[in-house]
Amino acid sequence: MGAFLAVLFDWGTVGDFLFHPIILRGLRETLYIAAASMALGVVLGVALGVMRVSQNPFVSGFAGFYVWFWRATPVVLQLLIVFFGLKELIDSDVFNDEWTRWRAAVITFGLNEAAYMAEIVRSGIRSVDTNQKDAAKSLGMTNIQAMRRVILPQAVRTMVPPTGNEFVAMLKNTSVAFAIGIVELTNAAQLQSAANHRVLELYMVAAFWYLVVVTVFSLLQAELERWLSRGEREQPETLVSRALALTGSGRGA
């Protein structure tokens, strides 16, 4: 069995394609779309999350409707609707335009992400002690000032771990963009494998890059969480902080 696999699975092909331009272009596309969509999703999500806790029933109702709509439909469907919608709105000649596809992907993933971020923001705001708002108001702050300067900075700390989850999910979900013909990482591997029939090898190449990106991202997230808890008695340890402690503790130990 081992020999059988060894014959079928060619590590050489994996090596050849690990840094192949087609794969790297796909990786770049994946990263760009994920980062741009996440940025859009976070900004919109914070706005929607704040609206969701508003005392004005129309404002919180609108945010609730938005969340309901984007969470209740499949993202592929949303992608197709936005893409063909854009096609209708803009000149249909640009149907094959890369830029139109790209915009459709970022808009869809971003608006979709905003719905999930809104829920994360809402629960983050809820996690902050209501006494904090009293304190801010007693100092003469308006609701918006209290939200911006007192509530949100504290809510961010509970928001970071689930937001990291969202980003990782987003990164992987960008592969759905093949539905409108975007050649991102998964799609690049698939197209290449169709050309040279090295299916498993090419998919392993794609998997490798997803693992690399998510690993780097997780390390950065750990650093961010450590930095956000700088005022605490206990800060969480990260790989970097442990490494620093090891090299720096030569004097102490």
């Binding site: 006494n131 009293d134 304190a135 108001k137 007693s138 100092l139 003469g140 504290q154």
Partner: peptide, 15 residues
Amino acid sequence: RAAIGMVFQRFNLFP
């Protein structure tokens, strides 16, 4: 409110 200072039982400092 800005002209009225308030001190709370639980301090309510901004952590």
